[in-house]
């Protein structure tokens, strides 16, 4: 909608320019950002599957990238996004069912999501490496 035919051209809420970031608002936008990151990750996963279905050379390229420093950092970030979006998504589903909507509950579940994400992300990498 152009500014001319918008009925009133005052800022619409929430006024992000003057809005102090809070745990709840940061977690909210993070759900969207991790969702977008995971969508990109899904493209990579399908590419990896296609490589695995072929002869060795393409797969070897993927294996090389996945174990390089940049690859490891990207995969670690992807693991973080996956667990964050998973746990916060569960939080969303509880809200949709009508639970946990009080402000103090939203903060408590938000903290649980952050802690759960860190533990699951680091834990799964430690596990994967120790099983090697």
């Amino acid at each position: 909608m152009s500014a001319a035919n918008r009925p009133v051209s005052r800022p619409l809420s929430p006024h992000l320019q003057v809005y102090r970031p809070q745990l709840t608002s940061v977690l909210s936008i993070s759900h969207r950002m991790t969702g977008i990151a995971l969508s990109v990750g899904l493209v990579y996963l399908v590419a990896w599957l296609c490589a695995a279905s072929g002869k060795g050379e393409t797969y070897a390229m993927f294996a090389w990238f996945n174990t390089s420093v940049v690859g490891r950092i990207a995969l670690f970030g992807w693991t973080f996004c996956l667990f964050y979006h998973l746990f916060n998504g569960i939080r969303h589903l509880f809200w949709d069912a009508g639970y946990g909507l009080e402000l103090k509950d939203a903060y408590a579940s938000g903290k649980a999501v952050v802690i759960g994400t860190l533990v699951a992300t680091v834990g799964s990498w430690v596990l994967a490496f120790s099983l090697r």
Binding site: A52, F83, L86, L93, A120, L127, A128, R132
Partner: peptide, 24 residues
């Protein structure tokens, strides 16, 4: 799809931990 993905992603994460380190 989100509810289904809770189970699927849990399976996927465990499987990757167990298998992703393997050779081709």
């Amino acid at each position: 799809t989100a509810a289904a993905l809770v189970l699927l992603v849990a399976w996927f994460a465990v499987s990757l931990i167990l298998n992703a380190q393997g050779n081709h």
